[in-house]
């Protein structure tokens, strides 16, 4: 009898010890470690170099017209960069379109500086071999909204329409894999490999964190990536046809995601694995 009790006690002890071990292990998850890593290098974000490059480009006279972009209206008046990104996409009277940052920069570079749309759209994203001017410009502008609350208004019917289109694209299943953005980004608590997949349509906090940390420096690629690149690559991963740079569809999707992030402090350019 006595020995039986001792066994029981030992067994209990062993069980509680193993539970404690499991608890300790789950306390620090992989995503916690990724978060730790991000924190460690957050004040050494190489995206700053791209911001510097973008700022120089913004102020430099360029294109056939030899003018800078300092008269570019990003929605808060000509030349106002501070806080502009937090209110984009927006409806612009001059173009009669809802535009995100990159499509607006495209407008400025064509109308002010005299570049052709094809010239810029030929090199919309940075690569290892060559930086992209429009991408660096976007990094600079985005950095000027750091700490400012996202406030994208859907009061204008065209913006509202863009939001609705974006939402539909988000949920639109197609392509050889029958995929939609929502396949990966509409469930809470799922992940791919070690990466947590944010729930962009049903979890406000996830949507806010995701949107406010793009554009971002991708450590694995050694490049600062723009938001248009992010969407372009999402379409590639879904095996959709490649969307046209700064097209209505990409702007609509951006509007949907930006509005979902309203209220959160913008924190980009971010840093990703």
């Amino acid at each position: 009898m006595r020995t039986k009790q001792t066994y029981k006690a030992l067994l209990l002890l062993a069980l509680s010890a193993s539970f404690a071990a499991v608890a300790a292990e789950t306390a620090v998850t992989d995503s916690d470690r990724i978060e730790q890593y991000r924190e460690m290098i957050s004040d050494g974000n190489p995206a700053e170099f791209d911001e510097m490059r973008g700022e120089e480009l913004w102020k430099k006279a360029a294109g056939p017209n030899k003018v800078s972009l300092e008269q570019c209206d990003l929605g808060k008046g000509a030349g106002v960069v501070k806080g502009a990104y937090a209110e984009l996409p927006k409806f612009f009277k001059d173009t009669q379109q809802v535009q995100d940052l990159e499509s607006r920069l495209l407008t400025c570079m064509t109308t002010l500086q005299g570049f052709t749309e094809d010239e810029i759209a030929a090199k919309p994203f940075a690569s290892e071999k060559k930086a992209s001017d429009i991408s660096s410009l976007a990094t600079y502008v985005v950095g000027q909204s750091k700490g400012i609350k996202m406030a994208v208004s859907t009061k204008h019917p065209k913006v509202k329409e863009s939001y609705e289109i974006g939402k539909r694209i988000f949920n639109y299943r197609a392509g050889p894999y029958d995929f939609a953005c929502s396949t990966c980004h509409a469930t809470t608590g799922v992940r791919i490999r070690m990466q947590d997949l944010p729930n962009l349509s049903h979890n406000k906090k996830d949507a806010q964190t995701a949107y406010t940390t793009w554009p971002a420096y991708r450590v694995s690629q050694g490049l600062t990536r723009s938001f248009q690149w992010r969407l372009n690559d999402c379409f590639r991963q879904q095996r959709f046809p490649e969307p046209k740079f700064a097209s209505e569809a990409t702007v609509a999707l951006t509007t949907f995601l930006a509005v979902s992030a309203n209220g959160a402090e913008f924190a980009g350019p971010g840093l990703k694995r």
Binding site: I41, G44, P46, F49, G222
Partner: peptide, 8 residues
């Protein structure tokens, strides 16, 4: 050491 190294 990685590209664009950071040192503290």
């Amino acid at each position: 050491v990685s590209k664009n190294p950071y040192l503290l």
